[in-house]
């Protein structure tokens, strides 16, 4: 018996044809760096639990060339995640009504980015203060 072979439009690389989807795939791909960085921290936590020698060795591996390169890429990727997270937030959160009017999208984005900047500075100040 013949198998019916309907035409299936090939979907390989569909997202490369439209800049909107290229951006979408890039911002989805930032998750790979979020996962990898969480894994780095998890290994650090395990090394910490193993004692001082293991912890110091882990800190030394962070100074290696590949580790620095990875963290540079992760910094770019996760910063981009921050930007896109707040850029699409007007569409991912329920509408906010202020004074009977819907809050404009750019206000939500700007507010989110300002919160991220404040959180980053607070974290840096906290670490700096604890280290002194």
């Amino acid at each position: 018996m013949n198998k019916r072979r309907p035409y299936v439009r090939p979907m390989d690389g569909w997202w490369r044809k439209n800049p909107y989807f290229v951006e979408y795939m890039i911002h989805e791909a930032t998750a790979l760096f979020v996962a990898a960085y969480a894994a780095v921290l998890l290994i650090g936590l395990l090394r910490l639990a193993q004692g001082e020698a293991a912890w110091t060795a882990w800190l030394a591996t962070l100074q290696g060339g590949w580790a620095i390169l990875f963290h540079l890429l992760a910094l770019v990727a996760i910063s981009y995640h921050t930007y896109t997270w707040f850029k699409i937030m007007p569409r991912t959160m329920p509408p906010v009504i202020v004074g009977g009017k819907k809050l404009a999208g750019w206000v939500i984005t700007a507010g989110g980015l300002a919160a991220a900047a404040a959180a980053s500075l607070a974290l840096l100040a906290l670490v700096w203060g604890m280290a002194r």
Partner: peptide
């Protein structure tokens, strides 16, 4: 991760290994 991710990566992965900014 949007709020703290970039700064965490900077602190643990770049600033401290490279001796930038922080003791």
């Amino acid at each position: 991760s949007a709020l703290f991710g970039p700064m965490l990566v900077f602190i643990t992965g770049l600033a401290i290994p490279l001796g930038l900014l922080l003791p």
